[in-house]
Design a protein around this nucleic acid. Structure first.
Lengths: 136, 136
DNA sequence: CGGGATCCGCATCGATACTG
DNA sequence: CAGTATCGATGCGGATCCCG
């Protein structure tokens, strides 16, 4: 009846195939992606840049609770993964603008799916947690 | 021409709306989801269970490099978030089976999207990293 | 303005040993 | 079998100071 395999079945089959990579993070695509954007900040930064290019200080303002250290670190990593571009204008004072690469933009689709899920199902999760808490 | 907004544009607009939550993890759905399944193991466990219910030891075998400690901890958390069910058969020795709840299954869709992206774009990421490395 | 360098606390996680 | 308890390392991440 469904035109495709149910998502969770498909996910289960995917999982089986990962074993072939011996769960080596350098070879398993999923582990690799998780290791690189699964941290606290990457998805936030990527989302912030999704609306258009932003300068370093603008990013810092957009994500108020990130330290400069972590912002720099996260940006470097996203850059070396090919998700964002770094454009330096050698003016005084310097202007550095970050923007999504085509690869970065292509990641926005899947990310958006996850985020929309979070928004629609947030209430259910909170409810589930409340039930667990009162059971304890 | 696109029947919907380009994904990265849509993501950018989402991001703007998160600011209203003051980036409080207890109220912002996205931060909350990230805090709970953004760790190293949750997505792996969820994927392992997507193929069908599994017992504790079966999960340990499916994800070889997880310690019992982390497996237990991750399972408890996924359970309290309402993603998985824990079924205990009071036999000797005990049998504990974990399975995805409907909520957990509903998460499989978005997750699958992300995973398929990782598989198709893994090569590009590796290539980007190689370019960065040689530039240094 | 856009970082780099350094110091350091704190939470996370792994290994090991023990239990019902 | 399916955990719990305890200990210890490690490394993430914040705070601070400095620089071109």
């Amino acid at each position: 009846m469904a035109q495709e395999l149910e998502p969770h079945r498909a996910l289960g089959e995917k999982f089986e195939s990962w074993i072939k990579f011996d769960f080596d993070a350098t070879r398993c695509p999923v582990r690799n992606l998780l290791d690189h954007i699964g941290d606290r900040w990457s998805i936030l930064i990527l989302s912030a840049l999704a609306g258009g290019p932003k300068r370093f200080s603008a990013l810092a303002r957009a994500v108020p609770d990130i330290s400069k250290r972590m912002l720099t670190q996260t940006l470097r990593r996203l850059q070396s993964d090919g998700f964002i571009d770094r454009d330096v204008q050698p003016t005084v004072p310097p202007q550095v603008t970050y923007s999504l690469t085509p690869l970065g933009k292509s990641l926005a689709g899947p990310l958006l799916g996850l985020i929309e899920w979070a928004e629609t199902n947030f209430a259910s999760v909170v409810e589930a947690r409340a039930k667990m808490a009162e059971a304890a």
